[in-house]
Amino acid sequence: MKIKVDWDKCTGMGMCESLAPDVFEVDDDGSLILHAEEVPDGQEDEVREAVAACPTEALSLES
């Protein structure tokens, strides 16, 4: 599964980082750093939670 970010919508809220820190990290200026483009094995649930938790609906998954 591939992680997709709508960069126009993302404002660096950081919910994704708190749920799946291996994949998502917010930088000092609020921009999102994506540590992995593919969902790492065994982290499907965390990443799904992170996608659902985004207040600006900037994240989605593509199979």
Partner: peptide, 14 residues
């Protein structure tokens, strides 16, 4: 205005 910070602490709190 420290957007990189609170979520790292959110994990500790949880």
């Amino acid at each position: 205005d420290m957007r990189a910070e609170v979520m790292k602490y959110r994990r500790l709190i949880g």
